[in-house]
Every structure is written in structure tokens, then in C-alpha cells.
């Protein structure tokens, strides 16, 4: 049996974020500020996935994320899997969880909300995880999953 060929090259130390829906890849890069990172970042997208159809994967060398940071991607990549790599080995696997507060990622769907006219970050609290329902900290309107739009 031949060893499965990696489509994105392996890293020595760092974090692999797998099972990202392909369409959310650049949003994930944005949220994790990888576009500003000085670490070596490689990614692949439109890879075949049984679960997602098309998935994306990101490998970040020498960088490990706090839960708080990585949970920010839970809204757009709820099934994301994180593999923590040390010396080419997976030493820890993690999943993402929707945080209690969501800051600056989601756009409020209420056109009369103050967040659309002032230069300010949006803020939401999660009312329920399943089905997902969030509440704007400012206008207090509730949004369900299909009403959620990213900034």
C-alpha cells in the first residue's frame, strides 16, 4: 500500500485547520488574520471531501491558536478540525465551538441598526447553538442561522 499523497505539504510544527468549507476559506484566513502573519502559511482549496463536497485546508507553521481565537471561525466553519503538529506528528486534535459572544465578524441584518452608520465593531450574544440564534448587542434584534451574513 502506498502512502496517501499529501496535496498540501506537511509542516514540522504548527497548526493544520481541516474541514473548512471551500467557500469559507478566505473568510477564515481573514478572521484568523493569516494575511498579516509572518509565519509560513499554505493552503489548498476545492479538495474533495466526503463530508463537505469541497473543502479547504490551511497549514500554518509555528503558530498555535488560543481557543478564543479559533472559535471565531465556528460560525462559518462549524466542522473545522484543528490538528496541532509537533515534529511532524499530530499531538492534539481540536474542534471549534461557537463562542458566547461574537465580535466584529457578523453584520446585523436590521437596516436600522446603529452599527451600519457608525464606525464601530458589531457585537452579538449567542442565544442558542442549535438551531443557531444570535442577538445584536445594540439593536437587540434576534437573527437565526439563515439570516446571518458575514461582514
Amino acid at each position: 500500500m502506498t502512502k496517501k499523497k499529501l496535496k498540501v505539504s506537511a509542516i514540522n510544527e504548527g497548526t493544520v485547520i481541516d474541514q473548512i468549507p471551500a467557500k469559507s476559506l478566505f473568510k477564515v484566513i481573514d478572521i484568523l488574520k493569516l494575511d498579516q502573519s509572518t509565519s509560513q502559511v499554505t493552503f489548498g482549496t476545492n479538495l474533495e471531501s466526503e463530508k463537505l463536497g469541497h473543502k479547504a485546508i490551511i497549514k500554518v507553521a509555528d503558530l498555535f491558536f488560543e481557543d478564543e481565537v479559533v472559535n471565531k471561525i465556528a460560525l462559518i466553519a462549524p466542522h473545522a478540525k484543528l490538528n496541532i503538529i509537533k515534529d511532524y506528528e499530530v499531538v492534539e486534535k481540536r474542534t471549534v465551538e461557537i463562542p458566547e459572544r461574537i465580535e466584529g465578524i457578523v453584520k446585523c441584518f436590521n437596516p436600522k441598526c446603529i452599527t451600519h452608520t457608525e464606525h464601530m465593531p458589531t457585537q452579538f450574544t449567542v442565544i442558542s447553538n442549535e438551531p443557531l440564534e444570535i442577538k445584536c448587542h445594540y439593536c437587540e434584534k434576534h437573527m437565526s442561522k439563515d439570516q446571518i451574513e458575514m461582514l
Binding site: K112, I114, T115, T117, E118, H119, C136, H137, Y138, C139
Partner: peptide, 29 residues
């Protein structure tokens, strides 16, 4: 002028603010 700047200025002058605003969430902000 933004709401931010108006409030910042007035909160320097007054001991309390009573406000009415057409946009939702403006008072919390």
C-alpha cells in the same frame, strides 16, 4: 458628525444625557 463625536463632546459638558434617536441600538452605543 458621528454619534460618537456628538456624545463624546456633550458628555464633557453635561452631568447626564437624555437622548432620543431614530436608529436602533444608538442609545446603547
Amino acid at each position: 458628525e458621528t454619534l460618537h463625536d456628538t456624545i463624546k463632546m456633550v458628555s464633557g459638558y453635561a452631568d447626564m444625557i437624555v437622548m432620543r434617536h431614530p436608529l436602533e441600538g444608538s442609545a446603547r452605543y
